[in-house]
Amino acid sequence: MNVEQFIRRFAEQFDETPTHDFTVDTRFKENDEWSSMTALSLIAMVDESYSVRLTGDDIRQSSTIKDIYDIVSAKIPNQQA
């Protein structure tokens, strides 16, 4: 799992914020665009791209993109083995 690619995919969920504004340390919930719809789109992106299901708690407990990245990394089956 490539972190740069993950950040880019994460950033694509935000329609109005330039991709280059996002880093691993970005506190995504502080972005004005973060909403219920963005959360839903993020869950869909992670499922589609990594076959990983984020839960409500995963998102609630995360602040930065790195927090989500770490959760997804830990849930990818071939990386758990």
């Binding site: 909403s35 719809m37 839903l40």
Partner: peptide, 12 residues
């Protein structure tokens, strides 16, 4: 439609 600032899973 979901009000800004609503529960982040309100849409779902």
């Amino acid at each position: 439609l979901i009000k800004p600032g609503a529960d982040e899973f309100a849409a779902i």
